[in-house]
């Protein structure tokens, strides 16, 4: 009973958790930049405001894709938390990202196109690492189910530390954090794929960002297994690492990002896979 109830509550509360996390992160970021920063509930204020704006859309398919991006991302998160197949989770996440990329291509704005291009390249950068990660977990546990990982008493972190490092290296790409925030790149392409969304439809994309936070931190939590204390420690560490990195680096170009991700993160994950399969 309990092992179903907790994930279901988590799934239902995921946007709320993600919003709080995002608000807290904005405060931490502001403090790192010696500012006071917005209130903790600022993302929810934005949410309420966006709901009250006039509904403008480029065309209905564009708006629909934006909303479907949110829905499919929530679905991917649900599968992950309920202990589903990790490969399925990763491909569902890929599906939600590609819906957004399609939305980006469906408009006529050049910045939207560029953003979609770059988002596709980002997918190319982090997706191989995630898949190798899933395969490594399969090698260790003999199953792709995340339920087995959540309940295993021996944390994955001790068995595959290199894979964790690889995950840390690709997380900034996924969460659109500096130095790998090329897909968003506010000063270059003013938000990329989000550019043409407005009002209620932007809200879907904006809230999907919060879900992405929950998704990524759950992936990090996977490495702790059933050890809740270690999991909390990993989450705090990842949070601080991401923010410190965000505030001490400039944005690199997408070619450098691809080279780094496929060269360093991918090889780390691959070495990890080799070690796991040999032992």
């Amino acid at each position: 009973m309990n092992d179903v109830l907790i994930p279901v509550i988590l799934i239902l509360l995921a946007p709320l958790l993600g919003g709080l996390l995002y608000g807290f992160e904005r405060i931490v970021k502001a403090r790192m930049q010696r500012r006071i920063g917005p209130p903790l509930l600022q993302p929810f204020y934005d949410f309420l405001k966006l709901a009250g704006k006039r509904r403008m859309m480029v065309h209905s398919a564009h708006a629909f894709l934006g909303i479907m991006h949110f829905v499919s991302l929530w679905f991917a998160l649900a599968v992950l938390l309920l202990g589903g197949d990790l490969i399925l989770v990763i491909f569902l996440h890929l599906l939600s990202t590609s819906l957004l990329i399609l939305a980006g291509y469906s408009t006529r704005s050049i910045f939207s196109h560029l953003g979609a291009n770059r988002a596709a390249i980002s997918v190319l950068a982090y997706e191989p690492v995630l898949i190798i990660l899933a395969v490594s977990i399969f090698m260790l546990n003999g199953t792709f189910d995340t339920a087995a990982v959540f309940t295993s008493s021996e944390p994955l972190l001790y068995k595959m530390p290199l894979a964790f490092i690889a995950l840390l290296l690709v997380l900034p790409i996924k969460l659109k954090k500096s130095p790998f925030d090329v897909a968003e790149a506010h000063q270059e392409i003013t938000g990329g794929v989000e550019l043409e969304f407005s009002g209620l439809f932007y809200e879907a994309v904006y809230t999907a960002k919060w879900l992405d936070y929950v998704f990524c931190y759950t992936l990090v939590f996977l490495f702790a297994g059933s050890n809740i204390l270690l999991g909390a420690g990993l989450l705090v560490f990842t949070f601080l690492y991401l923010n410190a990195l965000d505030n001490s680096t400039a944005r690199v170009s997408y070619k450098q990002m691809l080279r780094f991700s496929l060269g360093v993160a991918f090889s780390l994950a691959f070495i990890n896979l080799l070690i796991n399969s040999l032992t």
């Binding site: 502001a30 934005d46 550019l195 043409e196 932007y202």
Partner: peptide, 18 residues
């Protein structure tokens, strides 16, 4: 940092649609 209008939740979006 000296004036920091993000205190009031303001962001410079640069995008008219938002």
């Amino acid at each position: 940092p000296k004036y920091d209008i993000e205190r009031f939740g303001m962001i410079n979006t640069g995008n008219p649609k938002q």
